[in-house]
Simulated scan of single mutants.
Amino acid sequence: MDPATIIGLVVAFGAVLVSIFLEGASPMSVVLPAPMMLVIGGTLGAGLIGSTLKDAIFAFSSLPKALMFKPPRTTDAVETLVGLADRARREGLLALEDAAKDIDDDFLKSGLQGAIDGTDPEDLRGILEDRVNTKRTRDKGAAKYFADMGGYAPTVGIIGTVVSLVHVLENLNKPDELGHMIAAAFVATLWGLLTSNLVWLPLSARLKRASELECGHMELIVEGLMSVQAGANPRLVGERLRSLLPEEPAKKEKAAA
């Protein structure tokens, strides 16, 4: 699991709490049920209005992946593909049937099975690339859903503030309570901005990044499987696949030296 999202949430909300304490206020001064309900409920409703129920369900079902996402081990996939290419070159594709049973990656396993079954290379590539594109499209929809909510939240917060200020103007005859009511009115704007910039937009960015990594991993597997099916030289397969991996600057400098 990559803990970046959880760490980020703790740091972000921790900074907000610390700033409240440094101002000499109480956290309960901003934890008000009415504006929180308006902002969160209004944002969720606006998200549903601009989308479909199926999209909303898929977006929220993607949240565990955003929180518990584990980057794919692409370097391990490269080594597996090189080993498969070596065995296929020596013993033929049919010899890989036993090896396919030990592969944990479902995408690699199904693609390899297609190659073993004698699927035409162009057809196999088309099938695998369609699966990658379908995943990318679905993930993009989930990320867009949260990005849209991030756009709605601040405006919904302003609506909550306006509603509260109307209540303030109705009670101008109670000067002792005006300060508290005005402060409470701006809590809705606070929650709109806070949920937008610390929850919805970061979750959208997280889902986009997770999708990029997973689709890149799948695309590399497609190239590797095509080479295995073609009976390419294992050394060349390894070099080509490793050239597709993003290298760290330090490794690049070391290789250049």
Rank of each mutant, 00 (worst) to 15 (best):
A12L: 02
L38P: 04
D102H: 15
D2V: 05
E248C: 10
L165G: 10
S211P: 05
C215G: 11
A4K: 11
R235E: 09
R235H: 12
A25E: 15
S204N: 01
R90V: 10
Q229D: 08
W191C: 07
A232W: 15
P246L: 02
T119V: 13
N173T: 13
L193D: 12
I6G: 09
T75C: 11
M68N: 15
E253Q: 09
P121W: 01
E23H: 09
P71T: 00
L38I: 14
C215K: 05
P154L: 06
V166N: 08
Y152S: 05
A143V: 00
I103T: 08
G111C: 03
A205I: 06
A95R: 08
A66V: 03
K101M: 14
E212F: 12
D139P: 04
G141S: 15
A143C: 07
G150K: 00
S227A: 10
R125W: 09
L38T: 08
G151S: 09
A230W: 07
G157V: 08
G14I: 07
D148R: 11
T80P: 09
T75I: 12
I116R: 02
A256N: 15
D130R: 13
L178D: 04
L94E: 07
K254F: 13
A115C: 03
G41P: 06
A153T: 02
E23W: 06
T195Q: 09
E129G: 09
N233H: 06
I159W: 06
G238K: 04
A66N: 01
P202Q: 05
L241G: 00
L17M: 14
K208H: 14
G231M: 06
L124P: 00
K254Y: 10
G118Y: 00
N197D: 10
V18Q: 15
T43Y: 01
R235T: 14
I20R: 01
H180P: 10
L84R: 00
I159P: 00
F58L: 13
L178C: 08
D176T: 12
T43Q: 07
T119N: 13
L165Q: 04
D105T: 01
P3L: 11
S61H: 12
P249F: 05
T5S: 13
F58Y: 14
V78S: 02
H217R: 06
I40E: 03
